[in-house]
């Protein structure tokens, strides 16, 4: 029990340190907030001008997809932060302290929840401006936001592991682009999957980013009877399926990243 308390309190110290950095590097905050605004405006007006959906305004359909894409990409920040700390020898300092071994990673992934919460807030406000509305109850909406943050937290652990493997933060950026771009595009994030080629459609139906998007749309009430969810089990049970992925990712990557942290020797 004391071990758990120690780990969490060390994690909190590390998280505080990361948050101070966000405060001291305003550029970071600017890009974290401008990028989602940009995405919403671009997709809403560029794609939105050509896409016409049955029974629902495209902008309303779009927002959940942008939320999902943005929080997933937010994990890049986790990996880049870890790689940066490795490169600068700060991880060595942490590793020479009698602190618990997983707390650097716990601190990092936790402080990135704050960043994601911020970008979701900014996106929500921008969404409201372009016509997005929450049409379900307050509690369901809260559940939608919570699911987004939870999924982002799990992806953060994957990127933390990547950050420990690669030599520089730039490599994390590139790696995450290659990994996350297809993951967020072969999905129902920006367009319905009905007209995808069948292989892509199957991938999209089983892609947890799709189910996250579907779950969020349902919890916000941004769906239309004219646009039913695909028949595939994950899309019919998007909340459960997404939570299964969150659990699976955490079960694999928390121990894996912690193990890599212990053995990682920065040069």
């Amino acid at each position: 029990m004391t071990a758990v308390v120690d780990t969490l309190s060390d994690g909190a110290v590390v998280a505080k340190r990361n948050l101070i950095k966000i405060k001291r590097v305003p550029e970071l905050l600017v890009f974290t907030t401008i990028q989602p605004i940009m995405f919403i405006l671009l997709f809403a007006y560029v794609f939105g001008s050509a896409i016409d959906l049955d029974g629902i305004d495209y902008r309303e359909f779009l927002i959940a997809g942008i939320f999902a894409q943005t929080v997933v990409f937010g994990a890049t920040f986790t990996g880049a932060g870890i790689a940066d700390d490795m490169q600068k020898g700060i991880i060595d300092r942490f590793r020479s302290l009698p602190m618990s071994r997983s707390s650097v990673l716990i601190g990092r992934t936790s402080s990135d929840i704050a960043l994601n919460a911020l970008s979701i807030t900014v996106m929500s406000l921008t969404g409201l401006l372009v016509g997005w509305r929450i049409r379900e109850s307050f509690l369901e909406a809260v559940a939608g936001f919570a699911l987004l943050l939870l999924f982002a937290y799990a992806i953060s652990w994957i990127m933390a592991y990547v950050g420990l493997l690669v030599p520089t933060p730039e490599v994390v950026q590139n790696a995450s682009f290659v990994l996350l771009f297809p993951a967020t595009f072969i999905a129902n994030t920006f367009v319905p999957t009905d007209n995808f080629p069948s292989v892509l459609r199957t991938i999209a139906d089983w892609n947890p980013v799709s189910t996250l998007t579907q779950a969020t749309r349902e919890l916000f009430g941004n769906t239309s009877p004219a646009l039913p969810a695909p028949e595939a089990w994950p899309m019919q049970n998007p909340v459960v399926y997404t939570l299964l992925w969150v659990a699976g990712i955490l079960l694999v990557f928390v121990p894996l990243a912690t193990w890599q942290y212990k053995r990682a020797a920065s040069t």
Binding site: I20, K21, R24, K88, G89, I90, R93
Partner: peptide
């Protein structure tokens, strides 16, 4: 290499 955090 001085392992101090430059933003703190």
């Amino acid at each position: 290499y001085a392992a101090v955090d430059e933003y703190l």
